[in-house]
Design a protein around this nucleic acid. Structure first.
Lengths: 156, 156
DNA sequence: ATATCTGCAAAGACTTTGCATGAGA
DNA sequence: TCTCATGCAAAGTCTTTGCAGATAT
């Protein structure tokens, strides 16, 4: 069953960069593609392991680094000491979202409620910054922090 | 010479929380107040050390954690494996800024442009998210990523 | 007086690296 | 065949923790 971007859409990107297509890499991309949420390296390892017990944590880290460098995956820090990874989705794509992080329990909510102002703001900011600072802007990150319902009730 | 918010503006906040005012904490706040840029724990340690050689790295970390919890300081991750800290500045304050990170050399530029659009967008987003997800939003982070001028030229 | 704070050293956690082996093109 | 990729184990780096002594209130 082909994914939303066609069957093994990333093979071309890999070959174009001179990277090889291996079982481990396929398994990791597979997990990332179906992931509902941001996963840590270990989360991915655990999900890959049942079908590919030969893939070690080291390969997970090395592959993730590769994918981040290629821009296929985004790396996040939610403040709990381990990085999280998500398949990249352009700002207009279906799955594009940002994060709402509870600073108390570290729970993270994905939200996709994009108001027009945000897109407008991002567009202008990226254009302006690119020109002013001579940056090729490829990505942005927006996160909101606060206290979730549960934690607020507990504290009260 | 009193700082921009009055002499030892944070003493009240500390006492109110039952925290003690110590030489180490004064020195750390002093450094953060005058910092031009985001500093790592070690940066702060090195800046505090000349005048307070008795303050160790442990105290730096413990104090920073305290300050972050109090909301007086923001903690950032620019992807190079060490956290950076900055005195918090409300979105309307003079020093409020966001970051432009070069994914290649990790250089970080502070920018203060586009604040008006940003305020409008933030206001709406925070209101909407707070209501929809029952979050008390206290902070936000916006970062742009890309490749800086130098790195682009090197690659070409 | 006493609860808080601190330095030091050690532990902890996540991530990266060296090297010989295995696998893709 | 000839690189590139991988597992394992060890190292690395930043950060946190335990504890006894020092300090602020």
């Amino acid at each position: 069953m082909p994914g939303p971007r066609g069957p093994v859409w990333w093979h071309g990107r890999f070959r174009g960069c001179g990277y090889r297509i291996t079982l481990g890499r396929e398994a990791i991309l597979h997990v990332l593609t179906r992931a509902e949420a941001h996963l840590s390296a270990e989360d991915i390892y655990l999900k890959v392991h049942p079908s590919c017990p030969s893939v070690g944590l080291t390969t997970i880290y090395r592959t993730l680094e590769l994918l981040v460098d290629m821009g296929l995956v985004h790396k996040f820090d939610f403040g709990d000491g381990r990085a999280r990874y998500e398949l990249a989705e352009g700002p207009k794509k279906e799955g594009h979202h940002h994060h709402l992080v509870c600073t108390s329990c570290k729970r993270v909510i994905n939200y996709t409620d994009f108001i027009d102002e945000e897109l407008e703001f991002l567009k202008r900011a990226e254009e302006g910054l690119a020109k002013k600072y001579q940056f090729d802007i490829t990505n942005h990150m927006i996160q909101f922090y606060g206290m979730c319902d549960n934690c607020r009730k507990k504290k009260a």
